[in-house]
Design a protein around this nucleic acid. Structure first.
Length: 549
RNA sequence: GUGCCCGUGGCUUAAUGGACAGAGCGUUGGACUCCGGCUCCAAAGAUUGCGGGUUCGAUUCCCGCCGGGCACUCCA
């Protein structure tokens, strides 16, 4: 909360000091690496050095002189090669604490989104098999980002796009039919490209139970359609059950076949044609992406007459724009990175503005078990399902592990470690801090304290109290940082830091002391504020905060 | 071969171009008569893959190597 005001104060000191010069493009206000540098530090002198043709140290000292006149600051110094280091007054920090207690999580909300419609599309796995841990990472990242967007005032739609139209579904249908026949003792080989997972065997058994030998060695369009829809329904039930077990919900389930049925794929290709990006060659219809700087052109409609994945995807994104979203975010696995420039070229060709669609890629998840990698492939039927993972480690731990690293970082999920409940587990560390807080508040009530009473925060003079207040008052900065960088891991790192600061505080001081009621009330206020912050972050991450463990 | 991502203490990792590269795990040594020790304190541990360049300043940007992952389909 304070860094905003400080930024404004830096700007006004700058313009007062250098009235005829423009402001630097950007400069930071951040927490310095060590307490010795004060509470906040800014690099404004570095970023303005070129504009002012002046030594950063000189600039910093001029700005500092102005800032020093403000009672907001306790101390302003110039350090290093030109940092402006600021120490804010204790009164001000305590005001922030009071604000948190009064307004709760609203104290940290800035309306950046202003109600604009933001669509986040994630998971979007096709119904050909169960969700894997890789989808789990995507589900977690997408959910946390959606929560963040909502927190800062966007109207968010969480959408799941599934391909229920293409050839993969036919392959799935045929694979199921093969399993069905095998169940009936018919010796048919699973085709090379078939889905070999054991899950189809269970479904095949089910069909034998219901339909007997009706489809034995019989394969035509009707049979295909039956197996296809049977398989798709089963897969969807499974996917939805796993997601709900994982506490992830979607607002819209968007089917690819609806794009075809509603003529949107056809419309898209016509519009591309009108704009001069379509030509025919070798019996196929091509997208002239090279006109937009791509190194080659891509097929939109195969010579068989079927649309490609690229075309339907462009049609899908065109539809997103037509549905009136102000902005959309797609979350894709890193294996789709080659697809990014093509879809973007498609949108550009359609005249959709550049900033409309953002794509966040995340690196892969590997699962390590007994010290070695578990290879995962839906087609080969080798995987650890998301549902299994959630059953073993719980939704909270799974979700936290998925978002605790930067999406850019490869994630290696150690199943043995996760299964062993012992864990050097940050989730438990944070939950423990929260449970301790609840325990303290309970203890206070039991000893006759009214925990709703507001304490006199002026009594909070211990250094650990100052640290803790500084930590919790910057939650809004953390949320905005996570938003700017699309980095949910900023939240987990932050909440670990807050939990740490609380544990340190807890170990050193007593909160409930009948011989010093006023001090006790003051400290209980701080404890409650910490609880508000931990709960707010845990809600954004989507994990629970039990009162007892 | 071409393109994208990654390379940071023993391990897992953080750092919109900023200060002495920050955490956690592990290791070693400490701390409970009292609100939950699932906690806390301290120490050791790093030439940020290698070599150049840009900059007042580079883990971050550029170039070249080395190593790993991914993608280069009329699959999705």
């Amino acid at each position: 909360m304070l860094s905003r005001t400080i930024k404004e104060k830096l700007i006004s000191s700058y313009t007062r000091s250098f009235p005829s010069f423009p402001l630097p493009d950007q400069f930071t206000v951040e927490v310095p690496p060590s307490d010795g540098f004060g509470d906040f530090a800014s690099n404004i002198a570095f970023s303005s050095a070129k504009i002012l043709h002046e030594n950063p140290i000189e600039i910093a000292s001029i700005i500092s002189d102005v800032l020093r006149e403000d009672s907001f600051f306790n101390d302003v110094t110039v350090a290093g090669k030109g940092f402006v280091n600021m120490k804010v007054s204790d009164t001000l920090l305590r005001k922030m604490l009071v604000k948190i207690i009064k307004e709760k999580e609203d104290a940290f909300k800035y309306n950046i989104g202003k109600g604009k419609r933001y669509q986040v599309e994630f998971v979007s796995a096709n119904p050909t098999g169960p969700l894997t841990v890789g989808h789990g990472r995507q589900a977690a990242i997408g959910d946390v980002i959606s929560n963040i967007l909502e927190f800062i005032g966007y109207d968010v739609t969480r959408e799941y796009y599934f391909n229920d139209a293409g050839n993969q579904m036919n392959v799935l249908a045929h694979s199921l039919w093969v399993r069905y026949n095998q169940e009936l003792g018919v010796d048919i080989e699973m085709p090379e490209e078939g889905y070999r997972g054991e899950y189809l065997i269970d479904i095949a058994k089910e069909i034998v139970g219901k339909a007997g030998k009706m489809y034995r060695e019989k394969w035509d369009e009707d049979v295909k359609a039956f197996f296809r829809s049977y398989a798709a329904d089963k897969m969807f039930d499974w996917i939805k059950a796993d997601l709900s077990k994982f506490n992830i919900r979607f607002d819209v389930w968007f089917s690819e076949s609806s794009l075809h049925e509603d003529g949107k794929v056809k419309d898209t290709i016509e519009e591309l044609r009108k704009r001069g990006f379509v030509y025919e060659k070798d019996g196929a219809v091509w997208f002239a992406a090279s006109k937009l700087g791509d190194h080659e052109d891509w097929v939109l409609v195969k010579s068989t007459g079927e649309p490609t994945y690229l075309l339907t995807d462009i049609a899908y994104h065109r539809d997103k724009a037509k549905r009136g979203f102000d902005k959309v975010l797609d979350i894709w696995g890193a294996d789709h990175h080659g697809h990014v420039p093509r879809v973007k070229a498609g949108l550009e060709a359609l005249g959709i503005e550049d900033g409309f669609c953002e794509i966040l890629l995340h690196q892969f998840v590997t699962v390590v078990q007994s010290g070695k990698d578990v290879r995962m492939s839906t087609r080969r039927g080798e995987f650890v399902t998301l549902g299994d993972l959630v059953d073993t480690v719980g939704a909270d731990v799974a979700k936290y592990f998925f978002v605790m690293l930067s999406p850019d970082t490869h994630l290696s999920f150690d199943l043995d470690l996760a299964r062993s409940r012992s864990m050097d587990n940050p989730v438990f560390y944070i939950q423990y801090a929260h449970a301790r807080i609840c325990s303290v508040l309970r203890h206070a009530e039991e000893n006759g304290f009214d925990t709703n009473r507001e304490g006199d925060v002026r009594l909070l003079i211990a250094p650990e109290e100052r640290t803790l207040i500084k930590d919790i008052e910057r939650l809004d900065d953390v949320v905005l940082d996570a938003y700017d960088t699309l980095g949910p891991h900023k939240l987990t790192r932050y909440v670990e830091e807050v939990a740490k600061a609380f544990h340190v505080y807890y170990t050193k001081y007593r909160f409930v002391d009948k011989s010093n009621l006023e001090l006790s009330y003051a400290r209980l206020s701080l404890v409650k504020a910490v609880q508000i912050v931990i709960k707010t972050v845990s809600r954004l991450i989507g994990i629970s905060m039990p009162e007892n463990m």
